[in-house]
Measured scan of single mutants.
Amino acid sequence: EADPRLIESLSQMLSMGFSDEGGWLTRLLQTKNYDIGAALDTIQY
């Protein structure tokens, strides 16, 4: 079963217009401990 923190973070990022095609966003959020800010910083640079 998916981590509730992942579901919450992923749904927030999907609502911002990101896609999780191929699961890349799920993996990114997992490596950033479900921190949306850290994930966005990684995507920006």
Rank of each mutant, 00 (worst) to 15 (best):
I7N: 10
I7C: 10
D3A: 05
W24D: 04
G17D: 01
S11W: 10
I7H: 10
S19R: 10
I36E: 00
A38Y: 06
F18Y: 12
L28F: 04
G22F: 08
S9F: 10
L40W: 07
E8W: 14
S15W: 06
I43T: 03
L14N: 06
L25W: 01
G37C: 12
T31M: 15
D41T: 12
G22Q: 08
L10S: 00
I43R: 03
A38F: 05
G23W: 05
G22Y: 08
M13V: 03
I7M: 12
I7Q: 14
N33A: 09
L29M: 04
A2Y: 12
T42W: 15
G17F: 03
L29G: 00
L10H: 02
G23K: 07
Y34C: 06
N33F: 09
D20A: 03
I43V: 05
A39E: 01
M13G: 01
S19M: 09
E21G: 07
T31I: 15
L14Y: 10
Y45M: 15
S11V: 11
R5W: 06
A2P: 13
A2S: 12
G37S: 14
A39S: 06
L28K: 00
L29C: 02
D20E: 03
L28A: 02
L10W: 03
R27L: 11
L6S: 04
Q44D: 10
I7E: 11
A2V: 13
E1V: 13
T31K: 13
L6G: 03
D20N: 13
K32T: 13
R5A: 08
A38K: 11
D20L: 03
A39F: 04
D20T: 02
I7V: 13
Y34P: 00
Y45T: 15
D41G: 08
Y45S: 15
Q30T: 13
L28G: 00
I43G: 01
M16W: 11
E1F: 14
E21F: 09
T31N: 13
T42D: 14
D35N: 12
D41A: 15
L29E: 01
M13P: 00
M13S: 01
D20Y: 02
G22N: 11
K32R: 08
D35H: 07
G23P: 01
T42M: 11
L29F: 02
E1Y: 14
L14T: 08
S11K: 13
D20P: 02
Q12N: 08
G37E: 13
S11D: 09
M13T: 01
L6Y: 08
P4D: 10
D35C: 08
K32Q: 09
L10P: 00
L29K: 00
D35A: 05
S15A: 13
G22V: 03
G22H: 08
T26N: 03
Q30L: 13
L14K: 11
T31H: 13
A38N: 06
A39W: 04
R5E: 07
L28Q: 00
R5S: 06
A39M: 04
G37I: 14
D41F: 15
G23F: 08
S11H: 11
E21A: 11
D35T: 03
G22P: 01
L14Q: 08
D35R: 04
T26P: 01
A39I: 08
S11A: 14
M16D: 02
P4C: 09
L40T: 04
M16E: 03
N33T: 05
L40N: 02
L10F: 04
I36K: 02
A38L: 12
T42I: 12
E21Y: 09
F18Q: 01
L10Y: 04
L25R: 01
W24R: 05
G17E: 01
R5H: 07
T42Y: 15
P4Q: 12
L28E: 00
W24Y: 07
G22L: 07
G23T: 03
I36V: 14
L40A: 03
L6P: 03
D41Q: 14
G37Y: 14
F18N: 00
Q30M: 14
S11Y: 13
L25T: 01
L10K: 03
G37L: 14
S9D: 01
W24T: 04
F18W: 09
W24N: 04
G23R: 04
L14M: 11
D3H: 08
N33E: 09
R27S: 09
I43D: 02
P4M: 11
Q30P: 03
T42A: 15
M13H: 00
D20C: 04
D20Q: 03
F18L: 07
R27N: 08
I7T: 13
R27Y: 09
S9N: 04
G23N: 06
L6F: 07
R5I: 06
L14R: 10
G22M: 08
A2I: 13
L25M: 04
A2E: 11
M13Q: 00
F18D: 01
D20R: 00
R27T: 09
M13L: 10
Q44I: 13
L28H: 02
M16A: 04
S9I: 07
Q44C: 14
R5Q: 09
L25P: 00
T31Y: 14
Y45D: 14
E21K: 10
T26E: 04
L14P: 00
S11R: 15
E8T: 11
M16L: 11
A38R: 09
D41E: 14
Q12C: 13
S11I: 11
E8R: 10
S15C: 10
Y45Q: 15
L29R: 00
L6V: 05
K32A: 09
Q44S: 10
I36D: 01
Y34R: 01
L40C: 06
S9Y: 06
L6Q: 04
K32F: 10
D3V: 05
L40M: 09
L25A: 02
W24A: 05
L28N: 00
I43Q: 02
A2K: 14
Y45P: 10
N33Y: 07
P4A: 12
M16V: 04
A2W: 13
G17V: 02
A39K: 01
A39G: 02
D35Y: 04
M16R: 07
G37V: 13
Q30F: 09
E21M: 09
E1M: 12
E1K: 11
R27G: 05
D35F: 04
S15Q: 12
L25G: 00
E8V: 12
I36N: 01
S9C: 10
L28W: 04
K32I: 09
D41Y: 14
P4E: 11
D3T: 06
Q30G: 07
D3G: 06
D3E: 09
E8H: 13
T42S: 12
D3W: 05
